[in-house]
Design a protein around this nucleic acid. Structure first.
Lengths: 202, 202, 202, 202
DNA sequence: GATGAATGAGCGTTCATTCAT
DNA sequence: GATGAATGAACGCTCATTCAT
């Protein structure tokens, strides 16, 4: 067999393993996943994985990087062909949605490890979040009734409002400075400003 | 010793354990955390934990529920005292920020298990997200330059734009119906509409 | 309180614990039995047991010795009042049956476990059984001297006589009916009949 | 390596483990036996046992069943080649003695403990014993039909016959001398003599 | 003396990794 | 190169025992 065939075969194997790893890690989370199951799913022996990856961690990282690289690349490419800013933002969103449909559960893998720790806890938290969404929906509906708000989709707006909070977690990671509280106040106002008035010029 | 003192002491111990569990679970994630370390942190013996919790899972769930109950409650209460819808939304955000400052890393515990699997991977993904934020910031800046957008904080708006995508994952969990793609198209437009024009009536 | 009352109370407690230990050990075996359950059954605190016994092993041994002493004594006494060898053997069997009915499961409890729990206890019981064998041997020898018995191997016959008692345990497992005592009487007679006259036709 | 060699090796390992388990369980009892010691005795790693048995309980049960199957089988076979009832009873006793010499302490191991270890195993063994009783009953009934035996209670006599075997276990403890087999032969004859003709003078 | 909360040695079991075939 | 049987470090959990109250 020719050398190119060999390395072709190797590359194929590599892909098989990544794919199998993706499937199982997604379904069970990192710690509940056993190397043996990945091997079985890939149709190879347990030891063979170690010919391609030094260990479980590296396999996991390799798999995530593979996925995320594809994701990041498709997002980047999507911005290269829009005519105006709006077109570009829409293209990005399209690219994201396309990815999301294909790898729905990747984020769930990356979030909520405890889905696998306790289904009850997971449900309990989902219930809590649903109640919070309902709470915000009620407030928004009140705003619409009072004529203050446009007749927007209250559910979607509620979710956006709540997800926008994540900024405070994400940002606080980067901004660990002393005047954190000050900038938080400003962030809050800016966030509400965008939510209330949008980013467009009138 | 009087019975009230005993149950007081028990309640105190319970709190000690929850606190120690919080610290260690936050720092290491569920699977990397050893019961012995929690015990050490709580200043008690390994076996003592099992006098208060049936097992590791239950301790974890107890800890999360304790935190989230406090969070949910404070959010709910925050909406009871606002005069108008805007006041209420602000109150909610304040309550959230207060919690976020106190339990910064709780969400990171609940999301991204792989922070603990590989610091490198975590950093790599953060870099990717930063690049994406930069990408969006550039597009938004272009929009401002073109006079289409208000002189908003492009960083904040970029993050909001990106976090708003989570809706598609979150929603897809609830809407597993056939016409998912159709509703996705609508969701996209509605999301962009809110982002562009805000929720306020003009 | 007077000292004799105190030691009276102590003796009473001691008995309570032995009785509770008997109940639980019989029901669950040595290793499955938890000290806490014995304490609960005895209506005292867990630590109190250790005021009366150095540990679990010693409690078990104490309980077994108490029972077996009573058993051995009743067997010995039963041989003191028979007129002839047959009467004595019957008395022994009666004494055994009476004990067996009261402590059906004790023998099964004892049979193996405690060889490993306490070599001393094992030896002690072996000694007791040896004495019993000697007792029966004496009776049989008397029978031979009186010309009533053939010049059989008294040791072997004694062991056979004693092992034949196990029937009462084995059978009682299958026959848990009301008229158990009646059928026991019949069994005794049949057993002695076979022992005395053999199974062969003459 | 050929597949037959592999399964040969596996079967060999299986036997090694059973044998090691037998040795240690017999010497120490179920609860005092540590998996690690069995592994050491079998010359393998601790984890390897779990490739062959799901757990400690199952290993114990497997070991007991292996032994008892061999025992029950040898007893059954022994009754197939006797010409008359006496020959058959003698064959049974021979088979038993052969087993008893090989596995002196097995019965004492089995007697109680595993009621709590595995109800299934307990039932399984009870079934085996019931079959053995039935076997002897049949032989005795044959003897009665042939006019050789008195119309005794065959069930009781069968149980007595079987329990009398315990002598060989009990005695062998005291007589560990070289000529054990010789004295066993004598014991067998004496035992049968008493069983057949009783102890009474005619 | 009596208690029961606290303890920690000890063990069964898992599973990522290795290496002889 | 591919395999999977073998491995043993690691950890959750139990429960006899202790000792402060």
């Amino acid at each position: 067999m020719q050398p190119e065939n060999i390395s072709e075969k190797k590359a194929e194997r590599y892909e098989d393993i990544i794919r199998a790893a993706f499937d199982v890690f997604i379904k069970k989370g990192f710690h509940q996943t056993k190397m043996e199951e990945i091997a079985r799913k890939a149709g190879i022996g347990k030891g063979t994985i170690y010919e391609y990856f030094p260990g479980k961690k590296e396999l996991f990282c390799g798999m995530v990087k593979e996925c995320m690289t594809w994701y990041f690349d498709s997002i980047r490419q999507s911005t290269e062909h829009g005519e105006n800013f709006r077109q570009k933002l829409e293209n990005m969103m399209d690219a994201h949605i396309k990815f999301a449909m294909h790898a729905k559960k990747l984020t769930s893998l990356m979030s909520h490890d405890f889905t696998y720790i306790s289904r009850d806890l997971h449900m309990w938290i989902m219930q809590g979040q649903k109640k919070m969404i309902g709470l915000v929906e009620g407030i928004l509906r009140q705003g619409i009734d009072e004529g203050m708000l446009r007749p927007i989709d209250v559910h979607l707006a509620a979710v956006m409002f709540l997800t926008s909070w994540r900024i405070f977690f994400a940002e606080s990671v980067f901004n660990d400075n002393e005047d954190a509280e000050l900038s938080l106040e400003k962030m809050k106002e800016k966030t509400l400003d965008i939510l209330f008035h949008g980013i467009m010029n009138v």
